[in-house]
Amino acid sequence: MTPWFKRSRERLTTTSKRSIPDGVWVKCDACGEILYRKELDRLLNVCPKCRYHFRVPSDTYIELLLDSEGRTEHDTGLQAADPLKFRDTIKYPERVAKNVQASGMSDAVRCLTGNIDSRHVELAVMDFSFMGGSVGSVVGEKLCRAITRATKAPSPLITVACSGGMRMQEGVFSLMQMAKVSAVLARLSRVPQPFISVLTNPTTGGTTASFAMLGDVCVAEPQALIGFAGPRVIKQTIGQDLPEGFQSAEFLLEHGFLDMIVERSEMKKNISTLLDLLSPNE
């Protein structure tokens, strides 16, 4: 029964929200600040109030890191096969096709040869918008080829991780990509050429438990979620709430698993300096 003191009619609604055209204003996921879209883009999608780093597409990171001259993108023609004939709510090839169409990418990583402050590098940037940045055979192979190019050139390797982990739909093929990428990294490490791993929000599962943690230097964006098991799984397993800030980049830095946390706007400068300091051919 409705108590007599509760308002029974619908509350008055404001229409002001609707009068704003879609996409002009954005609310910060972390602090709730209302931000002007264009201003946010200019700030590299970092909230000016709380420094929250919005997740960005691979394009943004490629623009951010590489000089505009001399870029070549590789292996854009690689697409997922369906070795398991996997089907969940829809068939795996259908899911892939939908993601290809929506994202304009062939899979969850893009690999380029380019320059950082005129230094030749191999860059691999993951994109969360393609099936949660999950790693299947295509991502594994593209990373493997990028690492092999870096080994042969020889040139430094930079990976930008943004991934929920291995792609279930390819079963053990996906799991083996962890071993595959780590194994070719062993070759790069013998050259040696520097491997800088950038971890962005989120980097979890087998991605963290393979190449993302194998950087000669591991750099993360502020507040990025980084871990092995997802927070939900851990909560379920131990049956208690997780401490504040658990699995944040700051948490990992404190526990000794990252070299540093770097703001997006400083990322290129930082990586460039690191390469200057580490490069064997000076």
Binding site: M178, A179, S182, A183, L185, A186, S189, T208, A209, S210, F211, A212, M213, L214, I226, G227, F228, A229, V233, I234, T237, I238, L242, P243, F246, Q247, F251, H255, G256, F257
Partner: peptide
């Protein structure tokens, strides 16, 4: 998958083994 395991670097420990075993 637990708090201590994450604090002590579960992902890093696994990754190190993959690289070392290769």
């Amino acid at each position: 998958p637990g708090i201590g395991a994450e604090e002590r670097g579960q992902a890093a420990a696994i990754a190190d083994n993959l690289l070392a075993m290769a």
